[in-house]
Design a protein around this nucleic acid. Structure first.
Lengths: 252, 252
DNA sequence: TAAATAGTGTCTCTAAGACATTATGTG
DNA sequence: CACATAATGTCTTAGAGACACTATTTA
């Protein structure tokens, strides 16, 4: 047998650096955006990159992601999920850097965001208009995050993590449409969401030009996974599919 | 903004060790097994652990997993998929070790396995009779791998990666039943698999006590993801669910 | 021809999708 | 009332599940 698992002494080995990179999504005027940071030095000086940084020695991975998230946005207690670990040896020209990618969803009504509108080095970008290419392999990471978000929309209640606390059913439908990139039938959407029994009616309404809208709240006792909006044949939240979308750029 | 993404110099930081651990599945007399290695020294001396080892400095993550796989089993070219990265700071008492978990599926007809039947320190265990607890957080990792395997069975053709090159439809059904832990209807199974058009008839049959069985082959041109056996309400290949199954043991 | 195993056919009911209709507000 | 937007209802059809039946071999 190999001696690897049993006898290696970790200190004998040269160690890679380990970072977390976070794909932070939010809705801004009903469109899906993500946060990018402009790099100010080599490597990839002047390129946009995902917020991220090195893991501290005594810090859990999720905590590292949460810390990066809070440093950039000032936000805590949001939906956070580990996505995939990217470790191609030359993805960072400085040294071997392995990056654990996370996805975070920030609700549209969270206003503590540190990201000022005028800031030139930290900005929200609509996912349909991302600068390209991004630094490192971050194109690949964002492509994968988008794929996973789209995929999970269909069998989880992730969409609620992007909406404000109260919302109308048509706003929810709009969110699905934005992210899935597809029109949904109004009647069928109402039926599905009502049957799923994940919403709780508030006594609030919102006036508009026509009939006022009833506002709803996500039933808090339901977890994230109990809701199936739709099953599709071509779901694929697999890394392989992301790779197809954005072929790996190899620097060097 | 934070300086993390842009100005950190990786060499300034203390680095964690990074390993890959591989959950290697196979079918042995129609039952799902996975490979474990007995540890011969501290920490967890005498405990069973997943095969794994440290990542080499210039080696891709997948290659590291493939290398570990080959060292333990002698097998190449099998299905391999990254699962999740485990990095709880105290999961390894020696030092900070971050482990990238992989899952591998080995076909039942691969006989080059280095694992001898008599070996006392490397063994196949039926997934229903795993020694417990395993070393480190490997209970958690195996629980998650099982969850993911079960989940993906239902919307991919992963099951074919476990079967020999030619097989009968009822063997395939049996594999599904073994892994899902549930009886399936024969007629409905035949219908589904035929409609999916993922099988190619061979001119082989196998004789038994009753009517001989036709043997089939997986259509190679189909990828892994095009086949939907069934959608379920409670699918969850999420890490959270695995955590619920096997609460994290904290040593120390 | 009985037993054993392989493989097919059919009925029912649910739920998804398409689309039409009704409801309730404002100017 | 006309317009705008919200919300509900209905018809059709595909597909999942339950289960009964037929086919082909050996002893």
């Amino acid at each position: 047998m190999s001696e690897t698992a049993t006898t290696y002494n970790p200190s004998r080995y040269e160690r890679p650096s380990v970072t977390v990179d976070v794909v932070i999504f939010t809705l801004r005027n009903r469109e899906l955006h993500l946060l990018l940071v402009k790099r100010s030095r080599w490597p990839f000086e002047g390129f946009w990159a995902l917020p991220g940084g090195f893991i501290e020695m005594h810090e859990d991975l999720d905590d590292a992601a949460r810390r990066e998230l809070e440093e950039e946005t000032g936000v805590r207690d949001v939906y956070l999920e580990q996505l995939y670990t990217f470790g191609e040896p030359k993805r960072d020209p400085r040294t071997r850097v392995i990056s654990i990618a996370y996805m975070a969803l920030i609700r549209a009504d969270v206003h503590q965001l540190r990201v000022s509108e005028e800031s030139t080095d930290v900005r929200w970008f609509p996912v349909r208009e991302l600068p390209q290419p991004l630094a490192f392999d971050h194109d690949q990471i964002t492509a994968y995050a988008l794929l996973r978000l789209r995929s999970k929309l269909e069998y989880t209640t992730l969409a609620f993590q992007l909406l404000p606390e109260v919302f109308s059913i048509l706003e929810l439908k709009d969110t699905y449409e934005q992210i899935l990139g597809e029109q949904l039938d109004k009647g069928n959407f109402y039926r599905k969401i009502k049957e799923a029994d994940v919403l709780e009616e508030t006594n609030l309404t919102r006036e508009g030009r026509g009939r006022p809208t009833r506002l709803w709240r996500f039933k808090p006792e339901r977890g994230d996974k109990q809701f199936v909006f739709r099953w599709r044949e071509d779901r694929s939240d697999d890394r392989d599919s992301a790779t197809l979308l954005t072929p790996t750029r190899k620097e060097n």
